[in-house]
Simulated assay, not measured.
Amino acid sequence: MKYMLIMRATDETYKAFQDVDFNEIIETMGRFNDEMIRAGVLISAEGLDDAAQGVIVDYSSDPPVVTDGPYGETKELFGGFWILNVASKEEAVEWAKRAPMAGPGAKAEIRRVSTIDEFPQDNEWIKKERAWREATGQL
């Protein structure tokens, strides 16, 4: 089963890390990623750019409204993710507990990633996606 570990942080988290050497952060995350690679569970891992560089597309109106970052009244920001291939949610939780994310407001959200096999296989869009995944080596 695939699980996504979503890194979340608050303004307080970012403030606590503002004076930490970025190379130290990379080293710590690199060791954790390497441990997951050696265990054979890491599928992908990505960090996200500063939220101030992003945009929000709000679908509550038609047409959608696009707003440049930084976001207003944000309690938590999605900072990056890992996708793991593990046997169970409990195993994903164990990996998340080992992530080097100590600090005020730092959290990881764990969500199972649905597979294409869980959708109706006779649907034309699922068939097209399956063909694309097969053609690109994803299946």
Rank of each mutant, 00 (worst) to 15 (best):
residue 30 G to H: 03
residue 106 A to V: 06
residue 128 K to E: 12
residue 5 L to R: 01
residue 61 S to I: 00
residue 69 G to R: 10
residue 1 M to K: 08
residue 129 E to H: 07
residue 60 S to F: 07
residue 30 G to S: 07
residue 24 E to N: 10
residue 28 T to E: 13
residue 116 I to K: 15
residue 122 D to L: 05
residue 65 V to K: 15
residue 86 V to D: 14
residue 67 T to F: 02
residue 39 A to L: 00
residue 128 K to W: 05
residue 79 G to F: 02
residue 118 E to M: 02
residue 10 T to D: 14
residue 63 P to F: 06
residue 110 I to R: 04
residue 11 D to A: 14
residue 42 L to E: 05
residue 88 S to K: 00
residue 22 F to S: 08
residue 1 M to E: 09
residue 42 L to H: 05
residue 110 I to T: 05
residue 37 I to F: 01
residue 101 M to W: 10
residue 44 S to T: 09
residue 82 W to G: 03
residue 6 I to Y: 03
residue 31 R to P: 04
residue 17 F to M: 15
residue 135 A to T: 03
residue 72 G to V: 15
residue 116 I to L: 15
residue 13 T to F: 14
residue 50 D to K: 04
residue 98 R to T: 03
residue 109 E to L: 09
residue 11 D to C: 05
residue 132 W to Q: 01
residue 120 P to C: 13
residue 64 P to F: 07
residue 83 I to C: 15
residue 78 F to H: 12
residue 1 M to T: 05
residue 92 A to L: 02
residue 94 E to K: 11
residue 95 W to N: 03
residue 121 Q to S: 01
residue 87 A to E: 06
residue 10 T to C: 13
residue 114 S to E: 13
residue 11 D to S: 13
residue 51 A to L: 12
residue 19 D to M: 03
residue 88 S to L: 00
residue 85 N to I: 01
residue 128 K to I: 13
residue 64 P to A: 04
residue 42 L to F: 04
residue 106 A to D: 02
residue 63 P to Y: 03
residue 22 F to Q: 13
residue 131 A to F: 02
residue 36 M to Q: 07
residue 107 K to Q: 12
residue 123 N to V: 02
residue 87 A to C: 02
residue 79 G to Q: 11
residue 4 M to N: 06
residue 127 K to F: 13
residue 19 D to I: 01
residue 34 D to G: 13
residue 122 D to S: 05
residue 128 K to A: 12
residue 107 K to M: 11
residue 30 G to V: 06
residue 45 A to E: 15
residue 79 G to R: 10
residue 139 L to V: 04
